[in-house]
Design a protein around this nucleic acid. Sequence first.
DNA 1: CATAGATAACACTAAGCTTTGTTAAACCTA
DNA 2: TAGGTTTAACAAAGCTTAGTGTTATCTATG
Lengths: 295, 295
Amino acid sequence: MTTNGEPPNLAARRTGLSTRRSATLGGMTSATRSQPPSRRTQARETRQQAIVAHVMANGVATVTELTELTGASVMTVHRDLDELARRGVVRKFHGGVSAQPSTVFESSSEYRVTVQVREKEALATAASALLEPGMSIMLDTSTTNLFLARRLGDLGLGPLTVVTNYLPIMQLLRTMPDVHLIGVGGDYNSTHDAFLGMSAIEAIGALTVDVVFLSTSAMTIGTTYHQEPDIVTVKRAMMAAGQRRILLMDPTKLNRTALHRLAPTSDFHDVVVNAGTPRDFVDELRERTAVTVAG
Amino acid sequence: MTTNGEPPNLAARRTGLSTRRSATLGGMTSATRSQPPSRRTQARETRQQAIVAHVMANGVATVTELTELTGASVMTVHRDLDELARRGVVRKFHGGVSAQPSTVFESSSEYRVTVQVREKEALATAASALLEPGMSIMLDTSTTNLFLARRLGDLGLGPLTVVTNYLPIMQLLRTMPDVHLIGVGGDYNSTHDAFLGMSAIEAIGALTVDVVFLSTSAMTIGTTYHQEPDIVTVKRAMMAAGQRRILLMDPTKLNRTALHRLAPTSDFHDVVVNAGTPRDFVDELRERTAVTVAG
DNA sequence: CATAGATAACACTAAGCTTTGTTAAACCTA
DNA sequence: TAGGTTTAACAAAGCTTAGTGTTATCTATG
């Protein structure tokens, strides 16, 4: 598998297959920063993708093997492997690495996250069209809503009250003029970077907003789902607090289920999906609720 | 201050560095930020302090005047003035700037903040001695508590539950291991960078912690004060939520009053002050409550 | 309307951060 | 214990960005 002449990764480095850094690292933070890809980071991504591909193809691999494959130093490969192991993509053992059983799906979904930035931005744009000056809105814990929050600054519509339990959004809206921010407190959950629990639910229960924007990890035609009960309860509280409930769903989440049922799709006043969503899916969904297709 | 011959700091202009570089750090922000001061930023702070000092001394100043004073370009002075105006320290008008009426106190307090870093750190150290593993504590909206929060990482005592309504502390404890963070939500107040209001008070009311650490802007022997009613109500709620109430007061706040009365000093179980506090003040205070003197 | 003052746009610089490599020490495992 | 493997520590290089200056354009004020 090793080339003989020049390091094989040079070509890959030049073409730069990967687009952006994966969103997993610092939570979802990296998706929030609109920092440029950086040629160097891109090379790193390319290299890691090559490593993952190789490990997945062969099942296992030694570090030396990967060193030759990538043309990078032993230390760099180790560092890559540490990161990949931390992200649960591969498993390290003395002498090499092996593919995680679930890696096939995991990593492909990771790749998709990269792509979804565009989709989520489209959803955010479509959602922002529903906003009017003076409105009070609620944003749940989701990357899509983070994009929506960022949009609020651009379209200079008047004063707006925004309620959220998602720390990155708070951080974002903190300095935004014309935005009255109401933070929902509670038990801080580091994996979601948000405040959850009873206290959060009570705080939400005391509020009523004009529109609540939600997103969840899976949905079918009839039902929405999420894998974590703690999140489900908070989302339900939020739904109850909104006079209008709008669901934002990027393509990767459609036609899938998760452990816990959140709510029937008919509970939402509007579901926003991306263009490219299968026609029949949209049609069937339209029998339950209003559907907006975002450019 | 201006020399008559050539600009007094041509050399500085050429090198692009301000003449005074042995400056103290300035501004509350740099004290709260955990990032290094950066030589460049420091020069900038020094320059701004010089500007403020000059404007306060003379009441008004022209931009050209300040250009000569600082050795910076017109544009840079304008940028500084914009920032100072935004912070409410000076007022800009066509042709120059004037000192804000309330600036004298404001800015002098800004300078004090710089010095107080040492004092506040001492208070934080003394306060941290009272902590034990497994404890639940509450931290109010104050810089002193920010120092205390930062300390939590260092002394690796076991698990700790921390409640706060102060966003910088949340941000800080977010990634800290062994800390269970409970965020108090509410109306976000940008001047305090904290969540206040009814919602916050209710959230606090639902909690009880072992110790609550507070700080306020002014105190006499018998009473504590704060200038803002919104803050007072939240602090009172916090006091009620703590089985033990500890007050941290740096020297600049002693023997002063503010508009609103917060609570009698006897309501606190312990008051921590810095070494150097007048002996008789401490003695008199000891008739009301326990007093700890921090190195 | 003329002119000083203010802003905007662009370019340059230096500092910091991230990534990578190198070397040395520590660590397994056979 | 000897071999390679892993980690730690330091150093180098590129990239990014904050801060500043210069020039040009816009704006206000007499």
